[in-house]
């Protein structure tokens, strides 16, 4: 009875650059089950960024189906896409993308600000809880410039978790961190995964992929490998 969070069938994406048409994705198909920790790998130009954008409901495919938690994302309007991003997806970026001079708590609250159903009080509670989950309960009032890189990324992860998304989508989330902190953050992702979160992690580093359960490798817009990992355990402090 495993639930398929993502169902992708012969997904294509074309870009027109002048008179040329670039096929960034040439019919990609795969499913992601609930509770999986998937890394998507590929060199630059492999189409992984394009796939990430589509997975993140930032972009729509030219052809093929993308079902996220049962919703066909390809057919939605711009505003509906924003709604999907707001409620079903949690983004973690390489460069953290925190609002400067804004406290960690308020940074985490941000996605909920765009959800009219959440009251200010619920918002605060949910944000506190998310910060506790990432181990930053004592840093809520700190602005990003008062936090280390690792802590900033934890805040960003808390922000991705605060709306209880069906999928956390990380884009090179450890690219700006040193190896020790990377290990730390990967440990956090593993912990979240063990608690049931579905995680899709886009990276170009083999090492990172080893911490996941499954790796999908893209090359020239097609899947060339799709294999299961041992899920090497990152050491958590």
């Amino acid at each position: 009875m495993e639930n398929k969070i993502i169902r992708i069938a012969s997904l294509e994406r074309e870009f027109s650059v002048g008179i040329e048409t670039i096929h960034a994705l040439k019919g990609v198909s795969f499913d992601v089950l609930e509770g999986e920790f998937v890394t998507i790998m590929g060199a630059s130009g492999s189409g992984k960024s394009t796939l990430l954008n589509i997975l993140g409901a930032l972009d729509r495919p030219s052809a093929g189906d993308y079902l996220l938690d049962g919703t066909n994302v390809g057919t939605l309007t711009k505003d509906q896409l924003a709604g999907i991003r707001n409620r079903k997806i949690g983004f973690v970026f390489q460069s953290f993308n925190l609002l400067a001079r804004t406290s960690a708590l308020e940074n985490v609250e941000l996605p909920l600000m765009y959800n009219a159903k959440v009251s200010p009080r619920e918002r605060r509670e949910m944000a506190c809880q998310a910060l506790e989950t990432v181990g930053l309960a004592d840093r809520m009032g700190h602005a990003p410039n008062q936090l280390s890189g690792g802590q900033q990324q934890r805040v960003a992860i808390a922000r991705a978790l605060v709306n209880d998304p069906v999928m956390v989508l990380a884009d090179e989330a450890t690219g700006n961190l040193d190896s020790k902190t990377t290990l730390d953050i990967m440990g956090l992702f593993q912990k979240l995964n063990s608690e049931g979160k579905t995680i899709v992690f886009v990276t170009h580093e083999n090492e990172i992929a080893e911490y996941s359960n499954r790796t999908i490798v893209l090359k020239d817009g097609e899947i060339v490998k799709d294999y299961t990992n041992q899920g090497r355990q990152a050491i958590l402090d």
Binding site: K78, A82, G83, R85, N86, F91, L99, L110, P111, Y114
Partner: peptide
């Protein structure tokens, strides 16, 4: 970022 986290 605001657009990514659901701002229309």
């Amino acid at each position: 970022l605001r657009l990514a986290v659901g701002g229309r």
